[in-house]
Design a protein around this nucleic acid. Sequence first.
DNA 1: ATAACCGGTATCCCGGTGGTAACCGCGGCG
DNA 2: CGCCGCGGTTACCACCGGGATACCGGTTAT
Lengths: 145, 145
Amino acid sequence: MREPLPADMFDELCPSSLNPIRIGDKWAPLIIRCLEHGPRRFSELRVPLKRVTPKVLTQSLRSLERDGLVRRTVYAEATPHVEYELTPLGRSLLEPLAAACVWTAEHWDELLDARESYDHAARLDPRPSPRTGATASRTPESPAA
Amino acid sequence: MREPLPADMFDELCPSSLNPIRIGDKWAPLIIRCLEHGPRRFSELRVPLKRVTPKVLTQSLRSLERDGLVRRTVYAEATPHVEYELTPLGRSLLEPLAAACVWTAEHWDELLDARESYDHAARLDPRPSPRTGATASRTPESPAA
DNA sequence: ATAACCGGTATCCCGGTGGTAACCGCGGCG
DNA sequence: CGCCGCGGTTACCACCGGGATACCGGTTAT
């Protein structure tokens, strides 16, 4: 809980942006998962989210704060700092978020295969004008070539 | 299944764009729900999705097709037409999609309240420079006024 | 012949998201 | 004193999603 977040928490190739199931803006789900096990400071979050610039991280955090999913607390003690943590409302998102992760884990390969074959077919058949790509099941029109 | 889709299937104020849980692009979840009970033709989909221009609807359908979630079939019979239907992979999305809908239904009010009070506070306190907005819990710095 | 329907495309445009880089005030510390 | 880390902010900019409008080629209906 207090141990620092691992810098490689998110795979470089993490397909969150390609994932059909999304929560909030581009980085919101990753932020939520970073906060899953307790409050975190801004600079702590920057470790696993090293691809996120401070501006964008601030934007995302503000948006989450606005939606009541994250609470921002300023500690003005000797060493002042800021902590972000999930509100109960934010915690309630963990469940559907986990469900989304499960779906992705289970079907990611299928989705990638589908994309690959779709793109492959599109390269072979750069749809002339009336889209002859997807062959009809009954009485297909004459295929190209 | 073969009865036409209701034109008012989606509320004018349907907050899908504000929903923190999203699937695919802006219209994808609505399209998926339109296809939930059987194949649909392009012009059938345009009825409930009347706010979606044909270009954008085509884009969304192509994207879903590319991801293997929707199958596009051209029937070149006497009266040629096109049908879209969910693939098994697309059907598997219905479950997390429903979970997302449940979450939104349960927490929509909380989220709206949070936004309202956040925006209200922001108007009262147009953050001067160092953000004094969120009061610290211990040893808060002197609040404005 | 002509009009309508179907399933889209083509073109233009606009706004928002997200990225880069630089800078900032504050406090602590060597 | 100067510098660093913290937690950002500001300015600028490129890209892309999405919207508006118009058009299109084929087929059927009138």
